[in-house]
Design a protein around this nucleic acid. Structure first.
Lengths: 211, 211
DNA sequence: CTTGACAATATCGTATACGATTTGCAACGA
DNA sequence: TCGTTGCAAATCGTATACGATATTGTCAAG
């Protein structure tokens, strides 16, 4: 973060992994990356180590770094973590929501519903969820949600564009938002929880069929 | 982890921070650490960067690393995260608990109650909580709980030995364990939640009095 | 005595260099 | 043909070296 040379490397590689441009298992050669950015290996290594701690990259001694591959079980476990973090975030956020928050979210959902490009669904979905949690004001919590999101990213992007269509999530998003507007924390949290649990079931089914 | 030279540095400094030997704000000089371990600065930097991503250390450009200082608000927010993660972990763990888990926890609590050394309370408390969550089998979740625990460590160690005594936590621990033995997820989670919320209130009070 | 400018020192960040390990390939023998 | 062995190239991990930046101490002017 404070590190001039490593920072662009970190950002670029991270973005490439999240966008799916770098597939799991892809090797990340230090010299190659260093040359590309016109720097030495040392800041490159620091960027890669950082991604390692974020669980996006794996190091093997004397073999270097590769884009991390998640097992099926881990994906389901990460969704359990999402349930924990996001339900709590929503619970904390609802009492802080104001009129403009609701209208922003409504606008976003309307926009979302009209998008036909499958590629954008994933990003818009992500954005809606974050709008729900931001009023919590709990930055460490929001950061953790982002981290988990990043780890699941590759996987869910594929899933969203195949398994679940647009209708079911949209309906559930609406239900959650309505409960928020009513200030009904219990209902909203229950709806969010079910929303993520359904995703979890879809992932499980997707994997069973050999995704 | 895969990194021979940096690993001992990482472990040592991390342990020193968690044990409170390195106070928040304390500078971590690279050359000094390197000499102490008989290595160069480069692996030292990697160890420190790793601790930075774990939020235990802060870097300032051209000023180096210091042990991170948490603000009062952040401590309370981290406790909100504990509520999220630990309640979920317990929920997932209870269905997997077997007789030996219960007896291990009972034994531990009995042992705990007889300790008179305040210094040990914090560690025994930590251990009990982890025994509750381990049967969840969700390793990524357990790792996150550990991370949050580490960030709160310095703070709670002080608190446990001052604000709350031994009686109240022990009673609550007992309540949680009894609900687990009864297989009553709802009651157990509610009790755990209240347990952490009480800690949160104690921290808030402690800070208000200028801890 | 205080304050500001400047020099000396300490510390950091990273490029370069090099030994260590792994990987790819080719020559050889079964 | 196929598996082995050994060498060459690729890649890694880290020590050393050095320019850049921050910190500290000194001295002169006010």
């Amino acid at each position: 973060m404070t590190d001039a040379a490593a920072d662009p490397v970190y950002k670029d590689i991270r973005a490439a992994i999240l966008a799916g441009e770098l597939q799991p298992g892809a090797p990340l050669r230090q010299d190659e990356i260093a040359k590309k950015f016109g720097i030495s290996k040392i800041p490159v290594r620091e960027a890669l180590r950082r991604l390692e701690v974020e669980n996006l990259v794996t190091f093997e001694r004397n073999k270097g770094a590769t884009v991390r591959q998640y097992s099926e079980g881990e994906v389901l476990q990460l969704l359990d973590i999402r349930i924990a973090l996001e339900c709590r975030a929503l619970e904390l956020a609802i009492p802080n929501m104001i009129a403009s928050d609701f209208s922003d979210m409504r606008t976003h959902l309307t926009d979302y519903a009209q998008r036909t490009e499958v590629a954008q669904w994933s990003e818009m979905n992500r954005r809606f969820h974050h709008m729900l949690y931001e009023p919590s004001g709990n930055q460490p919590l929001l950061n953790m949600i982002n981290d988990v999101e990043a780890r699941l990213g590759q996987f869910l992007r594929v899933l969203v564009s195949t398994a679940s269509g647009l209708e079911r999530p949209m309906r559930e998003h609406n239900d959650i938002l309505m409960a928020c507007e009513a200030g009904d924390i219990k209902t909203a949290v229950a709806a969010l929880r079910q929303h993520i649990e359904t995703t979890q079931k879809e992932v499980a089914a997707f994997l069973r069929r050999g995704g």
